[in-house]
Design a protein around this nucleic acid. Structure first.
Lengths: 233, 233
DNA sequence: TCCCCTTCGATACACCGTATTGAGCCGAAA
DNA sequence: TTTCGGCTCAATACGGTGTATCGAAGGGGA
Protein backbone atom coordinates (compact mmCIF):
# COMPACT_ATOMS: atom_id res chain seq x y z
CA UNK A 1 0.00 0.00 0.00
CA UNK A 2 1.66 3.18 -1.11
CA UNK A 3 0.46 6.54 -0.16
CA UNK A 4 -3.23 6.06 -0.73
CA UNK A 5 -5.01 9.13 0.51
CA UNK A 6 -8.29 8.90 2.34
CA UNK A 7 -8.96 5.46 0.90
CA UNK A 8 -9.45 6.56 -2.68
CA UNK A 9 -7.74 4.88 -5.54
CA UNK A 10 -5.56 6.91 -7.80
CA UNK A 11 -8.20 7.08 -10.49
CA UNK A 12 -10.69 8.66 -8.18
CA UNK A 13 -8.28 11.14 -6.73
CA UNK A 14 -7.93 14.53 -8.43
CA UNK A 15 -4.60 15.60 -9.81
CA UNK A 16 -2.28 16.45 -6.93
CA UNK A 17 -2.84 20.04 -5.88
CA UNK A 18 0.84 20.87 -5.83
CA UNK A 19 1.05 21.74 -9.48
CA UNK A 20 4.65 21.53 -10.64
CA UNK A 21 4.60 25.27 -11.26
CA UNK A 22 3.11 27.02 -8.29
CA UNK A 23 2.78 30.70 -8.95
CA UNK A 24 6.06 32.37 -8.06
CA UNK A 25 5.81 35.25 -5.66
CA UNK A 26 7.83 38.01 -4.12
CA UNK A 27 7.32 40.99 -1.93
CA UNK A 28 7.68 43.26 -4.92
CA UNK A 29 4.99 41.45 -6.89
CA UNK A 30 2.65 41.62 -3.95
CA UNK A 31 3.25 45.31 -3.43
CA UNK A 32 2.84 46.03 -7.12
CA UNK A 33 -0.45 44.18 -7.22
CA UNK A 34 -1.66 46.04 -4.15
CA UNK A 35 -0.69 49.40 -5.64
CA UNK A 36 -2.46 48.50 -8.88
CA UNK A 37 -5.63 47.77 -6.92
CA UNK A 38 -5.33 50.94 -4.86
CA UNK A 39 -4.68 53.11 -7.91
CA UNK A 40 -7.71 51.68 -9.63
CA UNK A 41 -10.29 51.55 -6.87
CA UNK A 42 -8.88 53.25 -3.79
CA UNK A 43 -7.39 51.95 -0.59
CA UNK A 44 -10.52 50.15 0.53
CA UNK A 45 -10.18 47.94 -2.51
CA UNK A 46 -6.91 46.59 -1.10
CA UNK A 47 -7.64 43.47 0.88
CA UNK A 48 -5.31 40.55 1.30
CA UNK A 49 -7.86 38.36 -0.42
CA UNK A 50 -8.09 40.62 -3.45
CA UNK A 51 -4.34 41.05 -3.70
CA UNK A 52 -3.90 37.31 -3.49
CA UNK A 53 -6.60 36.78 -6.09
CA UNK A 54 -4.89 39.26 -8.41
CA UNK A 55 -1.78 37.11 -8.09
CA UNK A 56 -3.76 33.89 -8.55
CA UNK A 57 -2.77 32.66 -5.13
CA UNK A 58 -4.41 31.72 -1.86
CA UNK A 59 -4.69 34.52 0.68
CA UNK A 60 -2.45 32.85 3.24
CA UNK A 61 0.40 32.60 0.77
CA UNK A 62 0.98 36.30 1.36
CA UNK A 63 1.84 35.69 4.99
CA UNK A 64 5.04 34.13 3.87
CA UNK A 65 6.16 37.54 2.69
CA UNK A 66 4.41 39.95 5.00
CA UNK A 67 3.42 39.51 8.61
CA UNK A 68 0.42 41.77 8.60
CA UNK A 69 -1.68 43.94 6.34
CA UNK A 70 -0.16 47.06 7.87
CA UNK A 71 3.21 45.88 6.68
CA UNK A 72 1.84 45.69 3.17
CA UNK A 73 0.64 49.28 3.47
CA UNK A 74 4.08 50.29 4.72
CA UNK A 75 5.66 48.63 1.71
CA UNK A 76 3.24 50.39 -0.61
CA UNK A 77 4.14 53.78 0.84
CA UNK A 78 7.85 53.01 0.67
CA UNK A 79 7.46 51.99 -2.96
CA UNK A 80 5.98 55.40 -3.71
CA UNK A 81 8.81 57.10 -1.84
CA UNK A 82 11.09 55.56 -4.42
CA UNK A 83 9.54 57.94 -6.96
CA UNK A 84 10.19 61.01 -4.84
CA UNK A 85 13.60 62.45 -5.54
CA UNK A 86 14.05 66.15 -5.02
CA UNK A 87 16.37 67.93 -7.39
CA UNK A 88 17.56 71.46 -8.00
CA UNK A 89 20.25 73.91 -6.99
CA UNK A 90 20.20 75.47 -3.59
CA UNK A 91 18.23 74.58 -0.53
CA UNK A 92 15.13 76.44 -1.62
CA UNK A 93 14.83 74.69 -4.94
CA UNK A 94 15.50 71.34 -3.30
CA UNK A 95 12.77 71.82 -0.74
CA UNK A 96 10.33 73.12 -3.33
CA UNK A 97 11.13 70.13 -5.50
CA UNK A 98 10.64 67.83 -2.53
CA UNK A 99 7.21 69.27 -1.95
CA UNK A 100 6.17 69.26 -5.58
CA UNK A 101 7.29 65.71 -6.33
CA UNK A 102 5.56 64.46 -3.21
CA UNK A 103 2.41 66.20 -4.34
CA UNK A 104 2.74 64.69 -7.80
CA UNK A 105 3.14 61.25 -6.30
CA UNK A 106 -0.05 61.77 -4.34
CA UNK A 107 -1.81 62.79 -7.53
CA UNK A 108 -0.75 59.59 -9.19
CA UNK A 109 -1.62 57.51 -6.14
CA UNK A 110 -4.47 59.22 -4.37
CA UNK A 111 -4.52 56.55 -1.66
CA UNK A 112 -1.21 57.98 -0.50
CA UNK A 113 -3.19 60.79 1.11
CA UNK A 114 -4.78 58.23 3.44
CA UNK A 115 -1.46 56.81 4.59
CA UNK A 116 1.09 59.61 4.43
CA UNK A 117 2.23 60.72 7.82
CA UNK A 118 0.22 57.93 9.35
CA UNK A 119 3.10 55.69 10.37
CA UNK A 120 6.84 55.99 10.80
CA UNK A 121 8.68 55.81 7.52
CA UNK A 122 11.90 53.90 7.96
CA UNK A 123 11.86 51.94 4.71
CA UNK A 124 14.88 52.01 2.40
CA UNK A 125 13.29 54.31 -0.16
CA UNK A 126 12.05 56.72 2.49
CA UNK A 127 15.54 56.83 3.98
CA UNK A 128 17.01 57.28 0.51
CA UNK A 129 14.71 60.22 -0.04
CA UNK A 130 15.81 61.67 3.28
CA UNK A 131 19.43 61.16 2.34
CA UNK A 132 18.92 62.92 -0.98
CA UNK A 133 17.25 65.88 0.72
CA UNK A 134 19.78 66.23 3.49
CA UNK A 135 22.69 65.79 1.13
CA UNK A 136 21.33 68.53 -1.11
CA UNK A 137 21.02 70.77 1.94
CA UNK A 138 24.68 70.41 2.70
CA UNK A 139 25.25 74.13 3.05
CA UNK A 140 22.67 74.55 5.76
CA UNK A 141 23.47 74.63 9.45
CA UNK A 142 23.34 71.05 10.68
CA UNK A 143 21.26 72.03 13.69
CA UNK A 144 18.31 73.34 11.73
CA UNK A 145 18.25 70.87 8.85
CA UNK A 146 15.98 68.48 10.70
CA UNK A 147 13.36 71.00 11.81
CA UNK A 148 13.35 72.57 8.36
CA UNK A 149 12.75 69.30 6.58
CA UNK A 150 10.20 68.32 9.21
CA UNK A 151 8.30 71.56 8.66
CA UNK A 152 8.20 71.14 4.91
CA UNK A 153 7.15 67.53 5.31
CA UNK A 154 4.39 68.51 7.71
CA UNK A 155 3.08 71.16 5.36
CA UNK A 156 3.12 68.81 2.39
CA UNK A 157 1.36 66.06 4.30
CA UNK A 158 -1.42 68.34 5.41
CA UNK A 159 -1.77 70.18 2.12
CA UNK A 160 -1.85 67.01 0.06
CA UNK A 161 -4.33 65.44 2.39
CA UNK A 162 -6.74 68.32 2.15
CA UNK A 163 -6.29 68.65 -1.58
CA UNK A 164 -7.03 65.00 -2.29
CA UNK A 165 -9.94 65.06 0.14
CA UNK A 166 -11.46 68.01 -1.68
CA UNK A 167 -10.89 66.40 -5.04
CA UNK A 168 -12.70 63.29 -3.88
CA UNK A 169 -15.61 65.28 -2.55
CA UNK A 170 -15.97 66.98 -5.90
CA UNK A 171 -15.79 63.72 -7.75
CA UNK A 172 -18.28 62.08 -5.41
CA UNK A 173 -21.10 64.53 -5.95
CA UNK A 174 -20.95 65.06 -9.65
CA UNK A 175 -17.87 65.05 -11.71
CA UNK A 176 -16.53 68.56 -12.05
CA UNK A 177 -16.33 71.72 -10.03
CA UNK A 178 -19.62 73.01 -11.38
CA UNK A 179 -21.51 70.07 -9.99
CA UNK A 180 -19.73 70.27 -6.66
CA UNK A 181 -20.62 73.87 -6.18
CA UNK A 182 -24.14 73.04 -7.29
CA UNK A 183 -24.33 70.36 -4.61
CA UNK A 184 -22.66 72.06 -1.67
CA UNK A 185 -23.41 75.59 -2.75
CA UNK A 186 -27.01 75.49 -1.57
CA UNK A 187 -25.98 74.05 1.78
CA UNK A 188 -23.38 76.75 2.28
CA UNK A 189 -25.76 79.41 1.00
CA UNK A 190 -28.38 78.32 3.47
CA UNK A 191 -25.82 78.13 6.26
CA UNK A 192 -24.38 81.54 5.51
CA UNK A 193 -27.91 82.92 5.18
CA UNK A 194 -28.42 82.19 8.87
CA UNK A 195 -26.00 85.00 9.55
CA UNK A 196 -24.07 82.96 12.08
CA UNK A 197 -20.83 83.14 10.09
CA UNK A 198 -20.65 86.68 8.76
CA UNK A 199 -16.86 86.98 8.52
CA UNK A 200 -16.53 83.60 6.88
CA UNK A 201 -19.27 84.43 4.42
CA UNK A 202 -17.56 87.65 3.49
CA UNK A 203 -14.23 85.99 2.85
CA UNK A 204 -15.78 83.18 0.84
CA UNK A 205 -17.82 85.61 -1.22
CA UNK A 206 -15.38 88.47 -1.68
CA UNK A 207 -11.98 86.84 -1.30
CA UNK A 208 -9.93 85.65 -4.24
CA UNK A 209 -10.42 81.98 -5.07
CA UNK A 210 -7.18 80.23 -5.86
CA UNK A 211 -7.04 76.93 -7.65
CA UNK A 212 -5.35 73.91 -6.10
CA UNK A 213 -1.95 74.62 -7.66
CA UNK A 214 -1.92 78.22 -6.54
CA UNK A 215 -3.07 77.35 -3.04
CA UNK A 216 -0.37 74.74 -2.62
CA UNK A 217 2.39 76.99 -3.93
CA UNK A 218 1.25 80.02 -1.99
CA UNK A 219 1.38 78.14 1.31
CA UNK A 220 4.68 76.57 0.36
CA UNK A 221 6.12 79.98 -0.43
CA UNK A 222 5.01 81.27 2.95
CA UNK A 223 6.90 78.46 4.60
CA UNK A 224 10.01 78.74 2.45
CA UNK A 225 10.12 82.49 2.98
CA UNK A 226 10.03 81.95 6.71
CA UNK A 227 12.77 79.36 6.48
CA UNK A 228 14.86 81.67 4.35
CA UNK A 229 14.76 84.29 7.07
CA UNK A 230 16.33 81.79 9.47
CA UNK A 231 18.89 80.41 7.06
CA UNK A 232 20.34 83.44 5.39
CA UNK A 233 18.89 86.23 7.44
CA UNK B 1 -58.24 35.16 20.46
CA UNK B 2 -56.51 38.43 20.96
CA UNK B 3 -53.03 39.10 19.90
CA UNK B 4 -51.50 35.77 20.77
CA UNK B 5 -47.99 35.68 19.40
CA UNK B 6 -46.55 32.53 17.91
CA UNK B 7 -49.12 30.37 19.69
CA UNK B 8 -47.75 30.96 23.19
CA UNK B 9 -50.00 31.92 26.05
CA UNK B 10 -49.29 35.11 27.87
CA UNK B 11 -47.69 33.32 30.75
CA UNK B 12 -45.10 31.71 28.54
CA UNK B 13 -44.31 34.81 26.56
CA UNK B 14 -41.58 37.06 27.84
CA UNK B 15 -42.39 40.63 28.77
CA UNK B 16 -43.08 42.58 25.55
CA UNK B 17 -39.79 43.73 24.11
CA UNK B 18 -40.95 47.33 23.82
CA UNK B 19 -40.26 48.09 27.40
CA UNK B 20 -42.10 51.25 28.44
CA UNK B 21 -38.71 52.95 28.71
CA UNK B 22 -36.64 52.06 25.72
CA UNK B 23 -33.23 53.56 26.09
CA UNK B 24 -33.45 57.14 24.91
CA UNK B 25 -30.96 58.12 22.29
CA UNK B 26 -29.66 61.10 20.43
CA UNK B 27 -26.92 61.95 18.02
CA UNK B 28 -25.00 63.60 20.82
CA UNK B 29 -25.13 60.53 23.04
CA UNK B 30 -23.99 58.35 20.18
CA UNK B 31 -21.10 60.64 19.35
CA UNK B 32 -20.08 60.92 22.97
CA UNK B 33 -20.05 57.17 23.38
CA UNK B 34 -17.99 56.80 20.22
CA UNK B 35 -15.49 59.40 21.37
CA UNK B 36 -15.23 57.68 24.73
CA UNK B 37 -14.39 54.42 22.99
CA UNK B 38 -11.90 56.09 20.68
CA UNK B 39 -10.18 57.95 23.51
CA UNK B 40 -9.83 54.74 25.47
CA UNK B 41 -8.79 52.24 22.82
CA UNK B 42 -8.18 54.06 19.57
CA UNK B 43 -10.21 54.48 16.44
CA UNK B 44 -10.26 50.81 15.58
CA UNK B 45 -12.21 50.24 18.78
CA UNK B 46 -15.05 52.30 17.36
CA UNK B 47 -17.49 50.00 15.66
CA UNK B 48 -21.20 50.56 15.36
CA UNK B 49 -21.74 47.39 17.34
CA UNK B 50 -19.55 48.53 20.22
CA UNK B 51 -21.02 52.02 20.27
CA UNK B 52 -24.49 50.53 20.35
CA UNK B 53 -23.50 48.12 23.09
CA UNK B 54 -22.06 50.99 25.14
CA UNK B 55 -25.47 52.63 24.88
CA UNK B 56 -27.25 49.37 25.67
CA UNK B 57 -28.99 49.36 22.34
CA UNK B 58 -29.16 47.24 19.21
CA UNK B 59 -26.71 48.17 16.47
CA UNK B 60 -29.39 49.09 13.98
CA UNK B 61 -30.92 51.62 16.32
CA UNK B 62 -28.03 53.88 15.39
CA UNK B 63 -29.16 54.06 11.80
CA UNK B 64 -32.08 56.16 12.91
CA UNK B 65 -29.60 58.89 13.76
CA UNK B 66 -26.75 58.39 11.32
CA UNK B 67 -26.81 57.01 7.81
CA UNK B 68 -23.36 55.52 7.79
CA UNK B 69 -20.33 54.96 9.95
CA UNK B 70 -18.46 57.68 8.09
CA UNK B 71 -21.11 60.12 9.21
CA UNK B 72 -20.41 59.11 12.79
CA UNK B 73 -16.72 59.81 12.25
CA UNK B 74 -17.60 63.19 10.79
CA UNK B 75 -19.67 63.97 13.84
CA UNK B 76 -16.83 62.92 16.12
CA UNK B 77 -14.42 65.26 14.36
CA UNK B 78 -16.90 68.09 14.42
CA UNK B 79 -17.43 67.53 18.14
CA UNK B 80 -13.70 68.00 18.69
CA UNK B 81 -13.73 71.14 16.56
CA UNK B 82 -16.09 72.55 19.15
CA UNK B 83 -13.13 72.58 21.55
CA UNK B 84 -10.91 74.49 19.18
CA UNK B 85 -11.35 78.22 19.60
CA UNK B 86 -8.37 80.40 18.76
CA UNK B 87 -7.86 83.46 20.88
CA UNK B 88 -5.37 86.28 21.16
CA UNK B 89 -4.65 89.74 19.85
CA UNK B 90 -3.44 90.24 16.32
CA UNK B 91 -3.36 87.84 13.42
CA UNK B 92 -0.16 86.16 14.52
CA UNK B 93 -1.36 85.28 17.99
CA UNK B 94 -4.68 84.07 16.58
CA UNK B 95 -3.02 81.76 14.11
CA UNK B 96 -0.57 80.49 16.70
CA UNK B 97 -3.44 79.86 19.08
CA UNK B 98 -5.34 78.06 16.31
CA UNK B 99 -2.39 75.77 15.76
CA UNK B 100 -1.72 75.14 19.45
CA UNK B 101 -5.32 74.42 20.41
CA UNK B 102 -5.68 72.05 17.49
CA UNK B 103 -2.56 70.29 18.62
CA UNK B 104 -3.87 70.07 22.16
CA UNK B 105 -7.12 68.59 20.91
CA UNK B 106 -5.16 65.95 19.08
CA UNK B 107 -3.24 65.17 22.23
CA UNK B 108 -6.49 64.62 24.12
CA UNK B 109 -8.00 62.63 21.26
CA UNK B 110 -5.18 60.86 19.49
CA UNK B 111 -7.58 59.31 17.00
CA UNK B 112 -8.05 62.79 15.59
CA UNK B 113 -4.72 62.35 13.86
CA UNK B 114 -6.24 59.54 11.81
CA UNK B 115 -9.20 61.62 10.63
CA UNK B 116 -8.03 65.21 10.45
CA UNK B 117 -7.77 66.49 6.93
CA UNK B 118 -9.30 63.26 5.72
CA UNK B 119 -12.70 64.56 4.79
CA UNK B 120 -14.30 67.92 4.14
CA UNK B 121 -15.25 69.66 7.34
CA UNK B 122 -18.52 71.49 6.90
CA UNK B 123 -20.06 70.73 10.28
CA UNK B 124 -21.38 73.54 12.46
CA UNK B 125 -18.48 73.50 14.89
CA UNK B 126 -15.89 73.41 12.13
CA UNK B 127 -17.59 76.37 10.49
CA UNK B 128 -17.77 78.15 13.82
CA UNK B 129 -14.06 77.64 14.25
CA UNK B 130 -13.51 79.05 10.77
CA UNK B 131 -15.71 82.00 11.59
CA UNK B 132 -13.77 82.69 14.78
CA UNK B 133 -10.47 82.57 12.93
CA UNK B 134 -11.53 84.73 10.03
CA UNK B 135 -13.26 87.21 12.30
CA UNK B 136 -10.11 87.56 14.37
CA UNK B 137 -8.17 88.17 11.16
CA UNK B 138 -10.33 91.12 10.27
CA UNK B 139 -7.42 93.41 9.60
CA UNK B 140 -5.87 91.14 6.98
CA UNK B 141 -6.39 91.62 3.26
CA UNK B 142 -9.48 89.62 2.33
CA UNK B 143 -7.73 88.07 -0.66
CA UNK B 144 -5.03 86.32 1.35
CA UNK B 145 -7.01 85.25 4.40
CA UNK B 146 -8.02 81.97 2.85
CA UNK B 147 -4.58 80.89 1.65
CA UNK B 148 -3.06 81.91 4.97
CA UNK B 149 -5.53 79.91 7.04
CA UNK B 150 -5.24 77.02 4.59
CA UNK B 151 -1.46 77.03 4.98
CA UNK B 152 -1.59 77.01 8.76
CA UNK B 153 -4.20 74.28 8.68
CA UNK B 154 -2.09 72.20 6.34
CA UNK B 155 0.97 72.55 8.55
CA UNK B 156 -0.95 71.66 11.68
CA UNK B 157 -2.56 68.63 10.08
CA UNK B 158 0.74 67.25 8.91
CA UNK B 159 2.67 68.12 12.06
CA UNK B 160 0.06 66.63 14.37
CA UNK B 161 -0.18 63.53 12.28
CA UNK B 162 3.53 62.90 12.40
CA UNK B 163 3.77 63.73 16.06
CA UNK B 164 1.00 61.35 17.08
CA UNK B 165 2.39 58.68 14.81
CA UNK B 166 5.77 58.94 16.44
CA UNK B 167 4.26 58.91 19.91
CA UNK B 168 2.40 55.72 19.06
CA UNK B 169 5.51 54.08 17.72
CA UNK B 170 7.34 54.85 20.93
CA UNK B 171 4.50 53.53 23.02
CA UNK B 172 4.21 50.39 20.92
CA UNK B 173 7.76 49.20 21.39
CA UNK B 174 8.30 49.85 25.04
CA UNK B 175 6.87 52.68 26.97
CA UNK B 176 9.26 55.60 26.96
CA UNK B 177 11.81 57.18 24.71
CA UNK B 178 14.64 55.05 26.08
CA UNK B 179 12.96 51.87 25.00
CA UNK B 180 12.10 53.27 21.61
CA UNK B 181 15.67 54.23 20.90
CA UNK B 182 16.75 50.86 22.19
CA UNK B 183 14.40 49.17 19.74
CA UNK B 184 14.90 51.24 16.61
CA UNK B 185 18.36 52.44 17.41
CA UNK B 186 20.04 49.19 16.44
CA UNK B 187 18.12 49.10 13.18
CA UNK B 188 19.14 52.63 12.34
CA UNK B 189 22.69 52.00 13.51
CA UNK B 190 22.96 49.01 11.24
CA UNK B 191 21.36 50.91 8.39
CA UNK B 192 23.65 53.90 8.79
CA UNK B 193 26.60 51.57 9.16
CA UNK B 194 26.07 50.47 5.57
CA UNK B 195 27.25 53.91 4.54
CA UNK B 196 24.40 54.38 2.12
CA UNK B 197 23.03 57.40 3.96
CA UNK B 198 26.06 59.41 5.01
CA UNK B 199 24.45 62.85 5.04
CA UNK B 200 21.42 61.60 6.93
CA UNK B 201 23.63 59.83 9.43
CA UNK B 202 25.62 62.98 10.03
CA UNK B 203 22.54 65.09 10.67
CA UNK B 204 20.98 62.50 12.94
CA UNK B 205 24.20 62.10 14.90
CA UNK B 206 25.46 65.67 15.01
CA UNK B 207 22.35 67.78 14.62
CA UNK B 208 20.42 69.20 17.54
CA UNK B 209 17.55 67.01 18.68
CA UNK B 210 14.45 69.04 19.45
CA UNK B 211 11.59 67.65 21.48
CA UNK B 212 8.07 67.50 20.11
CA UNK B 213 7.04 70.90 21.43
CA UNK B 214 10.10 72.63 20.05
CA UNK B 215 9.78 70.95 16.68
CA UNK B 216 6.15 71.96 16.35
CA UNK B 217 6.77 75.56 17.36
CA UNK B 218 9.86 75.91 15.22
CA UNK B 219 8.02 74.86 12.09
CA UNK B 220 5.06 77.01 13.01
CA UNK B 221 7.34 79.99 13.47
CA UNK B 222 8.87 79.40 10.04
CA UNK B 223 5.41 79.51 8.54
CA UNK B 224 4.20 82.51 10.52
CA UNK B 225 7.38 84.43 9.69
CA UNK B 226 6.76 83.79 6.01
CA UNK B 227 3.16 84.90 6.34
CA UNK B 228 4.22 88.04 8.16
CA UNK B 229 6.41 89.02 5.27
CA UNK B 230 3.36 88.94 3.01
CA UNK B 231 1.01 90.66 5.39
CA UNK B 232 2.97 93.55 6.73
CA UNK B 233 5.93 93.55 4.42
C1' DT C 1 11.12 1.57 3.55
C1' DC C 2 9.38 3.86 7.26
C1' DC C 3 8.80 7.73 10.22
C1' DC C 4 9.28 12.24 12.05
C1' DC C 5 9.32 16.84 11.24
C1' DT C 6 8.81 20.93 8.90
C1' DT C 7 6.15 23.66 5.63
C1' DC C 8 2.22 25.66 3.93
C1' DG C 9 -2.24 26.82 2.58
C1' DA C 10 -7.26 25.58 3.12
C1' DT C 11 -10.53 26.03 6.62
C1' DA C 12 -12.34 28.35 10.46
C1' DC C 13 -13.22 32.21 13.54
C1' DA C 14 -14.50 36.52 15.19
C1' DC C 15 -15.85 40.69 13.69
C1' DC C 16 -17.21 44.30 10.63
C1' DG C 17 -20.89 47.59 8.07
C1' DT C 18 -25.31 47.42 6.59
C1' DA C 19 -29.48 45.34 3.41
C1' DT C 20 -33.35 42.84 4.20
C1' DT C 21 -37.43 41.62 6.16
C1' DG C 22 -40.67 40.19 9.25
C1' DA C 23 -42.95 41.43 13.34
C1' DG C 24 -45.50 44.72 15.95
C1' DC C 25 -47.93 49.14 16.34
C1' DC C 26 -51.03 52.81 14.75
C1' DG C 27 -54.75 54.77 12.05
C1' DA C 28 -58.56 54.39 9.00
C1' DA C 29 -62.31 51.95 6.95
C1' DA C 30 -66.21 48.78 7.62
C1' DT D 1 -65.68 47.57 17.58
C1' DT D 2 -63.29 44.97 14.53
C1' DT D 3 -60.35 44.37 10.75
C1' DC D 4 -57.15 45.43 7.67
C1' DG D 5 -53.45 48.10 5.42
C1' DG D 6 -49.50 50.76 5.77
C1' DC D 7 -45.45 52.08 8.44
C1' DT D 8 -41.70 51.86 11.72
C1' DC D 9 -38.11 49.74 13.54
C1' DA D 10 -34.76 46.52 15.06
C1' DA D 11 -33.36 41.40 14.82
C1' DT D 12 -31.52 38.50 11.54
C1' DA D 13 -28.76 37.64 7.67
C1' DC D 14 -25.17 38.53 4.21
C1' DG D 15 -20.97 39.30 2.17
C1' DG D 16 -16.82 40.82 3.39
C1' DT D 17 -12.53 41.49 6.36
C1' DG D 18 -7.77 40.08 8.80
C1' DT D 19 -5.61 36.31 10.56
C1' DA D 20 -5.17 31.87 13.96
C1' DT D 21 -5.33 27.10 13.57
C1' DC D 22 -4.27 22.76 12.13
C1' DG D 23 -4.24 18.80 9.22
C1' DA D 24 -2.26 17.13 5.23
C1' DA D 25 1.59 16.77 2.05
C1' DG D 26 6.60 16.56 1.10
C1' DG D 27 11.45 15.94 2.35
C1' DG D 28 15.29 14.09 5.02
C1' DG D 29 17.27 10.59 8.27
C1' DA D 30 17.41 5.97 10.37
Amino acid sequence: MRCIVSGMLVWERPEPPNRPVLAPLSREWIVRAAIRLADADGLEAVSLRKVAAALDVGPMRLYGYIATKDELLDLMVDAVYAEIRPAGDGWREVLRSLAETTRQAAHQHEWLADLIGGRPQLGPHALARGEAVVAALGGVDVDIVMPVVAAVDAYVIGAVRREITERRAERATGMDKQQWQAAFGPYLERTFATGRFPALATVVRDGAHLDANQTFRTGLDFLLDGIEAHISG
